[in-house]
Each structure stands twice: as structure tokens, then as C-alpha cells.
């Protein structure tokens, strides 16, 4: 007999990243209910965004990026789905191709060459300059997470001082709606 005990080993343990769209009643505490589910059961949240999408029906859309084995992802979806204020849970990763975008604000502080280099990079990445002083810029970039991370990386040596990111908003491609 082997000496291994709990937990189960009969499941596929490969960890994958999934993007979930969750339609919820916009009522007090709903976000905390969802965040509490993740912390209480030991699941990861990599990104979470929430905003009301249909004001007259008090409906919000939450986009969660999480990672786990197939079993864990199924559990996460089932646990989300059984929350009373949750209407629907869709796994965009399983649905096929989806669009994922986030927005970042990046502040660069400095003078001289660094400053000019930062501006050139911003142009190359298609970022907008939304604030400028003699010693600083604030850029806005919208794009896939990879683009934003690349931009952050190259901007680092040019005096990048502050980053604010929204987290991911996502949607399936094609005519299908949630």
C-alpha cells in the first residue's frame, strides 16, 4: 500500500487560466459574496472587474480571471452558480475565442532623454498621452493583458513611477450573447 492520503489524485492536475463572465443582481454584498467564496475555498483570483451593465434591471457583470485544474475550475463555476444572486456563469475560455481587454494608466516621471524615449514608446504602442507636465506624463493604454505587460516592461527603464490597471473585461466573439 502506498502511503499517500488525501487529497485525490484521480483528477487531471494541469493548471490552466480561465476567464469567467458572471451575471449577477447588483445588490449590496454581491461582490463580497463572490470574493469570500474564492478566499473561503482557497481559489485564486488573478483579476476581477465588476460594473453595472443594465441599470434598470440592477444587473452587473463580473469578469473573473482565475486558474486551477479542470476539477477546480468546475467547482468554482458550480459554487458561483449556486449563489442566490448569480444569474449565469459562462466560461469564456471553454466557449472558444473571446476578446479580453484591459486599460492601464501609467505615470512616467523624469527629464531629458528618458522623457523623450517614453513618449516614443507610447506612440509605438498606441498609448494616448492624457496628462503632461514638464517632468511627467500619464499614458493610457487599452489592450490585451500581454500588450499592457510588455508596455510596462519597456517603460520601466524610462522612469515608470506608477501603474493603475482596471483588470480584464471580456466577451465572446461572434453573434452569440450571454
Amino acid at each position: 500500500m502506498s502511503v499517500s492520503h488525501y487529497p485525490a489524485v484521480s483528477f487531471d492536475q494541469t493548471v490552466r487560466r480561465h476567464t469567467l463572465s458572471v451575471i449577477v443582481d447588483n445588490e449590496p454584498g454581491v461582490l463580497s459574496r463572490i470574493a469570500g467564496l474564492f478566499s473561503g475555498r482557497g481559489y485564486n483570483i488573478e483579476s476581477l472587474t465588476v460594473s453595472e451593465t443594465e441599470a434598470e434591471k440592477h444587473i452587473s457583470r463580473i469578469t473573473i480571471v482565475t486558474s486551477g485544474s479542470e476539477k477546480i475550475i468546475d467547482q468554482i463555476k458550480n459554487h458561483l452558480d449556486r449563489l442566490v444572486p448569480v444569474h449565469r456563469v459562462v466560461d469564456l475560455t471553454l466557449q472558444g475565442e473571446s476578446i479580453e481587454r484591459e486599460l492601464a494608466l501609467l505615470k512616467v516621471v523624469g527629464k531629458g532623454d528618458h522623457r523623450m524615449e517614453a513618449l516614443r514608446l507610447a506612440t509605438a504602442f498606441g498609448a494616448r498621452t492624457i496628462d503632461a507636465t514638464v517632468t511627467s506624463f500619464v499614458f493610457e493604454l487599452t489592450g490585451a493583458t500581454d500588450d499592457i505587460e510588455r508596455f510596462i516592461k519597456v517603460l520601466g527603464p524610462c522612469g515608470l513611477a506608477e501603474v493603475s490597471r482596471t483588470g480584464i473585461a471580456a466577451m465572446a466573439r461572434g453573434s452569440e450573447v450571454m
Binding site: 485525490a8 467547482q75 449556486r82
Partner: peptide, 11 residues
Amino acid sequence: IDPSSINKNVK
């Protein structure tokens, strides 16, 4: 009746 009970501990 609870889908989250299924495949939680045993497949």
C-alpha cells in the same frame, strides 16, 4: 440537487 457537490471529492 447541488451541482457543486458533484465531482468535489470523488469523480
